[in-house]
């Protein structure tokens, strides 16, 4: 038997590692992967809450998040391919045609 907070803290850690990856990673594919990790962290929180509340909706939310993640991945990877075609690099620091 485990307190719910263990699952939630794990989910928070995953989420935060994703946030960190978003800032640290230099190539756009890895940045995107970090975002996926964040979504996974959220999914764990949803399922944990669903279990604790004895409510099925948390499960459904995860389902929808996956659907969204799939659509996002298709578009995101297409964008990455288009960028690499135009720029020949994956490094996010080289994405500097426009000054920030």
């Amino acid at each position: 038997m485990i307190p719910l907070s263990y699952y939630l803290i794990l989910s928070a850690i995953l989420f935060c590692i994703g946030v960190a990856g978003f800032f640290f990673k230099r190539d756009i594919v890895s940045i995107f992967i970090s975002i996926e990790l964040m979504l996974n962290g959220v999914n764990l929180a949803f399922v944990a809450f669903s279990h604790a509340l004895h409510s099925i909706s948390g499960n459904l939310f995860v389902f929808f998040v996956m659907v969204v993640a799939a659509a996002e991945a298709a578009v995101g990877l297409a964008i990455i391919i288009a960028v690499v075609r135009a720029r020949q690099t994956l490094n996010v620091d080289r994405m500097d045609l426009m000054k920030l």
Binding site: I31, F32, I35, F46, F49, L53, V75, G76, A82, L97
Partner: peptide, 27 residues
């Protein structure tokens, strides 16, 4: 394409935060 990429990466990043917020509301 660069604009699209920046919009996409930051937008998805933001969405993840929004989603975590939803999870907490649900919890």
């Amino acid at each position: 394409t660069e604009s699209s990429l920046k919009y996409f990466l930051l937008g998805s990043f933001a969405t993840a935060f929004f989603l975590y917020g939803i999870a907490l509301v649900y919890g």
